[in-house]
């Protein structure tokens, strides 16, 4: 059984509604001017240092969203890269942006150009510094590795969704002595970034990055809502485990929380 429509277990609709409310409510609160706290994320503070070092050395910084397909994750990466570009533009530090997805390439053209405009240096924007190499995983990796070696990049920022090629970027970057900061939602690639990079942003920290960097109320508020959602998840799991302990794992009530068909089984007595 899988959940293909909300009706397969109405709980999912309720859950989404609650989480959306959490998020929208907190965004609203933040917009009203309520100061919101965000804990320190090691690694993000190092971004400015890395840019500074690149400026001193007169070498470019490299931005890689990797193989990230166009979608929610890619938009988040572009948000982060926009911030980094804006900072680097202030010091006229050259940047390279390498992507393996043509749609991300297209959108990046816009985003990066905007970043230069916001930094007040639109004349520094160079369309050729944003490159689509290939949508083929390892052709892309070979091109990125070659570019890192030839241009001796001083800082290497990898944000997005990564697959096996992650270590090719990270080790090559390490070889040329770049400061490396990586952030990814791909759990399977985190250990390699941890081993080869100076700082690694893990899991949801990736989504917190733009809030952390920009301190925009909308993003901070959203982050508070996300925290509430996680606390809700944790409470549900605790509650469910207690029910499972004392009433058994087959209790129909448990099925309500995410088992396909579990809602109808409990409320209508179907499917048992």
């Amino acid at each position: 059984m899988s959940i293909q429509h909300a009706q397969d277990n109405w709980f999912v609709a309720i859950l989404i509604a609650i989480i959306s409310l959490f998020i929208l409510f907190n965004i609203f609160r933040a917009r009203k001017g309520r100061a919101l706290y965000i804990r320190r994320i090691a690694g993000l503070d190092a971004i400015d240092d890395a840019i500074g070092r690149a400026t001193e050395m007169g070498r470019p910084i490299l931005l890689i969203p990797g193989m990230t397909a166009f979608g929610v994750i890619a938009m988040q990466s572009l948000n982060i890269f926009k911030y980094i570009t804006r900072e680097s533009a202030r010091f006229a530090t050259p940047m390279r942006f390498l992507t393996a997805n043509p749609t991300v390439y297209t959108v990046a053209q816009e985003t990066i150009q905007e970043a230069y405009q916001e930094a007040g240096r639109p004349e520094l924007y160079e369309p050729d510094s944003i490159r689509f190499l290939s949508d083929r995983q390892f052709a892309f990796a070979s091109g990125a590795a070659g570019l890192m070696q030839r241009e001796k990049v001083a800082a290497n920022f990898m944000f997005g969704e990564f697959f096996a090629e992650s270590l090719i970027f990270a080790e090559t970057g390490n070889m040329v002595g770049a400061i490396q900061i990586a952030g990814t939602v791909s759990t399977t690639q985190v250990p390699f970034f941890v081993a080869a990079c100076d700082y690694t942003i893990i899991g949801e920290e990736f989504y917190a990055t733009s809030a952390y960097l920009s301190r925009e109320p909308v993003l901070l508020g959203s982050l508070v809502g996300q925290d509430w959602a996680k606390i809700l998840f944790a409470s549900l799991i605790l509650f469910g485990s207690l029910v499972a302990t004392f009433w058994g794992t087959d209790t129909p009530l448990l099925g309500v929380f995410g088992k396909a068909g579990g809602w109808d089984a409990f409320f209508k007595g179907e499917g048992q």
Binding site: S2, Q4, D8, A164, T187, T188, A260
Partner: peptide, 22 residues
């Protein structure tokens, strides 16, 4: 496959070692 398949289909998985963790 897990998300969008018809519910009656059982799913077997033959991943590379790296994907197995998931």
């Amino acid at each position: 496959w897990i998300s969008y398949r018809p519910p009656n289909l059982i799913v077997g998985y033959a991943p590379t070692s790296v994907m197995a963790a998931e």
